[in-house]
Design a protein around this nucleic acid. Sequence first.
RNA 1: UCCCCGAUAGCUCAGCGGUAGAGCGGGCGGCUGUUAACCGCUAGGUCGCAGGUUCGAAUCCUGCUCGGGGAGCCA
Length: 468
Amino acid sequence: MPLQRTAIKDILSPDGPPAQTAGGDVLVQGWVKTRRSSRSVSFVQVNDGSTLRDLQVVVDESSPAYAVANALTTGCSVTVAGQVVESQGKGQQYEIQAQEIRLLGGADPETYPLQKKRHTPEFLREIAHLRPRTNTFGAMARVRSAAAFAIHSFFQQRGFQYIQTPIITASDAEGAGSMFRVTTLNLDNPPRHDGKVDAAEDFFGRPTFLTVSGQLEAEIFAMALSNVYTFGPTFRAENSNTSRHLAEFWMVEPEVAFCELDGLAELAEDFLKHIFGYVLDNCREDMDFFNRWHNPETIATLEGIINSRFERVTYTEAVDLLLKSGESFEYPVNWGIDLQSEHERYLTEKRIGRPVIVTDYPKEIKPFYMRLNDDDQTVRAMDVLAPGIGEIIGGSQREERRDTLLRRIAEAGLDAADYYWYLDLRRYGTVPHAGFGLGFERTVQFITGVSNIRDVIPFPRTPKNAEF
RNA sequence: UCCCCGAUAGCUCAGCGGUAGAGCGGGCGGCUGUUAACCGCUAGGUCGCAGGUUCGAAUCCUGCUCGGGGAGCCA
């Protein structure tokens, strides 16, 4: 038996098996997907997660491995030794003629929940510890990994520094939604002061929360390193029950000094194209699988985006397009409203048919830190809307003028004292800068065509659900 | 959080007032290299939970829990 394990991906490579394995002895290890047996021969499909495809292991009656092979059931883990040979069958070019099979761990077929047939995503969520063994979830995990790598490579190639911002924070990124409280106080009997829970007694001596965004901290480092990005988990305690929201999700947030909104829009467009292109180039089989089983348009859509220019419209122009559309919207359109899902869908899907970057929103519907335009009505905000998913990126040029920022903080009803360090960045060496946030899971959703966000993250956190 | 829909065998579902069904999966057997293999036999159920209506409830009503679709909030 060879000592060195060979990945199934290498044996089934489109270029054929590596020279050192072709016709020679190989060692393969993985999990049994299924077995088909007749009296004289047994076929065992083995998958090791290195690729979507299963390796067909052929065991003849005469092989010493035949008895072991015939006892294998779905879910077993095995070590297989044999020769790589050209297949006599039609489903695959190469297969293994097995000499020896060792059962590493059995899987009682009476209780093992994964079957050969297709399972619903809802059922698979209930067995999140076993669903990585399915085709869909394995493909998702590989695409997710590749997309994460593409995000890092995009920024690293452009000289951005990766900044790790805190997960526990005392500051509230205004407008980003409800936060999870972090505490070590005894909730059955918390210390009190003047009738209220005394946060001064808590671990950090003050109220603390799980972060909703690394933006404000990223701005600190952009004001020193120029180009930075964060990529980490963020948390929202909103009671959102939709196929596009998670309580814990990953967000990418670049922050760019000496950059205005137009430059940021360019960056966002290049960024999305880079991620999509990398995944299409490096996860072809997985993407073909998603295209076949989840969304027959997904590859064509991604290729279309890579090869097209994103449309750019101002909020005012977008409202105009909606008013002239002749569509009857559930939420009436007028200048000043926040764009609803139906409006965003109309713009990006029906009216334009590709991603749209909408800029310059009314200041009333955007957070205080977005840069005020000269009209005193709109801010330099930017949303990237994509067909089928809606808002995928939200960002803005930041307000770098200290007096204007102070005024906006007051208008928002916030206490400037809470933002002293944020204001200091404008007090000492302020520069124009801009940044955006990309929801990583929404990006993976968009790439794969998987309809529920709970199925593009290994362990989804949603209201009333933190199993696994 | 709001609106609609759903929960029956391990899975996917049918049954919708009168003794619980199918396909797949499982078990056993068969089968000349199979590809969601195929053929035969077979076991398997507190019909989500708690109340109510009724001679009788999987079926009708109420509440709850969980899931799905849509909306809001947003990434």
